[in-house]
Amino acid sequence: MDLFQYDFMLRALVGALIIGLAAPALGIYLVQRRLALIGDGLGHVALTGVGAGLLLNHSPVLVAVIAATLGAVLIELVRAYGRTSGDLALALLFYGGIAGGVTLVGLSDASTGSLNAYLFGSLTTTSRTDLITIGVLGVVLLVTMLVLRPALFAVCHDEEYARVSGLPVRALNLLIAVGTAVTVTIAMRAVGVLLISALMVVPVATAQQVTRGFRSTMTAAMALGLFAAGTGVWVAATADTAPGASVVLVAIGSFLLVALAAAGLRALRRRTRTDRATSPAEPAEHEVLLR
């Protein structure tokens, strides 16, 4: 592994691994809530933060965290209280976010190259400060998602029941929203605004092809995220491809492989089952027999 003798490659690898582990740990709650693409939208909003940061000569990542958090809270409020216009409000926020970002970056002295770095990721330029930010936020995120797993599971699984259980539903929802914003901003370094949802969602989608429970899905998704991040950076270093895109392609490749294998296994199992289909017929489901 000569490639990793360079500091910048090592930093890229460590950053990618942290994100690979943390992103699915949060993404699973988004998938459970069928909000898989929310991360994508928040990435757009984060871009406005990046633009503002570049324009004001402040740390773009920090301003992006603030912008994405505000966006996430706004989306959560729309989700909780909004009615029919929720869909439109989200669209306005997302497209406003990306347009604002492009405009602000254009106004600043930054080159189009730096816009590209945020759109598609730029792992190899990860600085020591970036790595510390990613590390601290990643660990806080991971610990929160793991410690609060039962409560977050309950809220995402059945919100009304969670309310009758006396859980702080609003606070937990906001926590997921803010966690999404934080994940988006730290993952922005690795895969870029446009590919963020992939790291949060694809490992979860892969895991649930074979898992039966929530906890096992979460564990498997985190392992898959770690694998995709490590392999992706290695592929990028050897084949000289874009690291962010390579990580995402590895994740999607794993999904296809696992999905095909799982489908094959299911077909095989079904065949063996019909071969010995002598078991007594089970009662039909949803049978209504009231007297």
Binding site: I28, V31, Q32, R33, R34, A36, L148, P150, A151, F153, A154, C156, H157, D158, Y161, A162, S165, G166, L167, P168, L172, V204, Q208, T211, R212, G213, F214, R215, T217
Partner: peptide
């Protein structure tokens, strides 16, 4: 509910019932 996107075992769903008692 309409069935969430992520699988959950029967035991995991039933375990949610303990949250009111043991806290978050």
């Amino acid at each position: 509910g309409a069935g969430s996107g992520v699988p959950a075992t029967v035991r995991e769903v039933v375990a949610s019932g303990r949250l009111a008692r043991r806290g978050v």
